[in-house]
Write a protein that binds this DNA or RNA. Structure first.
Length: 101
DNA sequence: CTACTGACACCCG
DNA sequence: ACGGGTGCCAGTA
C-alpha cells in the first residue's frame, strides 16, 4: 500500500512553518523519482480553498513566479513576515531546512 | 545580474 | 503515437 506522490507532496507542504519557504527542486529532491516540474504542476492544481501553503514554494532562484493572479503569492508571503524584494526574491536565511524528514 | 540552452516530466490537440 | 508548450533546473556566457 503506497500513498501517491501527490499525497506525499501535500504532507511535505503541510510541514512548512509560517515565515519559511522552499523550492520546487528541494521538494522534488525529497521525493525519489519526482521531477521539479512535476512538483510545480501538482501545486498548480491544488483546489482553490486549500489549507496548504502553496505560496511558500518558489523556484531555485528564490523568486516568486506569481502566475497565480496578480501578486497574490507575494502578498501572502509578506503577510507571514517574509520580505519579498522588489525583484520578487526571498531571503535565503528563511529557507525551510529539508532535513525534517 | 540577465539570457540562452539542453534535458526532464507532463499536459493538450 | 507525435509534436509543441510550460509554472523547472543546472550549466554556461
Amino acid at each position: 500500500m503506497e500513498i501517491s506522490v501527490q499525497e506525499q507532496l501535500w504532507l511535505l507542504l503541510s510541514q512548512i512553518p509560517e515565515g519559511r519557504f522552499t523550492t520546487y527542486g528541494r521538494l522534488a529532491a525529497m521525493l525519489p523519482g519526482v521531477h521539479a516540474r512535476q512538483v510545480a504542476r501538482i501545486l498548480s492544481q491544488l483546489p482553490e480553498g486549500t489549507q496548504l501553503p502553496w505560496h511558500r514554494v518558489v523556484n531555485s532562484q528564490f523568486k516568486v513566479s506569481d502566475f497565480h493572479g496578480s501578486g497574490e503569492q507575494s502578498e501572502r508571503l509578506r503577510t507571514e513576515g517574509l520580505l519579498v524584494s522588489a525583484s520578487g526574491r526571498l531571503p535565503k536565511d528563511k529557507v525551510w531546512p529539508d532535513s525534517v524528514l
